[in-house]
Simulated assay, not measured.
Amino acid sequence: MPRLAARLVRACALGVLALAGSGAALAQAAPDPGTDLGPLTQRWLDDAMSRNQAAGLPLRMEVSVGSLDSRLRLAPCARVEPYLPTGAKLWGRTRLGLRCVEGPTAWNVFLPVTVKAFGPAWVLTGPVATGTVLSAQDAMEAEVDWAEESAPVMANPEMWVGQVAARPLVAGQALRQSMVRAPQLFRAGAQVKVLAQGPGYAVASAGQAMSAGVAGQIVRIRMDNGRIISGTVNESGTVVVAL
């Protein structure tokens, strides 16, 4: 399941986003906006989180609401509608819009919101230097907040075992996609095997790599006759050219 973490993140974020989109149905009375907006918003978000869990989404969600600027003075409002601003998601540090939809004066404000999503992940047991190939012994399973950072958590060991640390990593960090990269299989200038494939045939030859090769990436190869072709590096370091 090479994309499990990203799929779970999207499922949770989109699930909560869909629930949040029904703000008009969840609009509540707020006779004193100066004191009631925080609790009103907390109730609305708690309801969204409860529906999220009832839908069977895989993470344990927690939400906390910040406070408005104390200098704001809002007119009385009989009904306040929460909504998500364009481009916002109920994930990590975000904000929720609140607008007066029934009152003598229309107003619109934003509250800071923090959504945490706790679930299983792999946490480093010690420091890892840049360029180190990760093994199964480098991390242990633990519960972490997936929404603490924007990069998706790698919940399945198949996603990070054998990958290379893209930067210095420290003990206690949850492994995320931005922390690793595929290992380099050959350097620029190296002689590499080239496999040209077409319908019903395959021809093997050799050429010189014009850049370093990483599995899954496209590289350019200079053939013995001087021709330059492009192909995809496979897991064994062979450059596969589709004809």
Rank of each mutant, 00 (worst) to 15 (best):
A25V: 11
L26C: 05
A27C: 13
A27K: 00
A29K: 07
P31V: 10
P31R: 09
D32L: 07
P33R: 00
T35H: 11
D36K: 02
D36C: 05
P39Y: 01
R43F: 12
W44H: 08
D47F: 10
M49L: 13
M49E: 06
S50P: 00
N52Q: 09
Q53R: 12
A55Y: 09
A55H: 11
G56N: 05
G56T: 10
P58Y: 08
L59I: 11
R60T: 10
M61Q: 11
S64W: 03
G66N: 06
L68R: 04
R71A: 15
L72N: 07
P76G: 09
P76W: 03
V80H: 00
Y83A: 04
L84I: 12
T86R: 13
G87N: 11
L90W: 01
L90Y: 01
T94K: 06
L96R: 00
G97C: 09
E102W: 08
V109C: 06
V109Y: 02
V109S: 05
P112N: 13
T114A: 12
V115M: 03
A117S: 10
F118V: 08
G119F: 02
P120M: 11
V123S: 08
V123L: 07
L124E: 06
T125H: 05
V133K: 13
L134R: 04
A139R: 00
A142M: 09
E143W: 06
E143T: 15
A147C: 04
E148H: 08
E149V: 06
E149D: 14
P152C: 10
V153H: 02
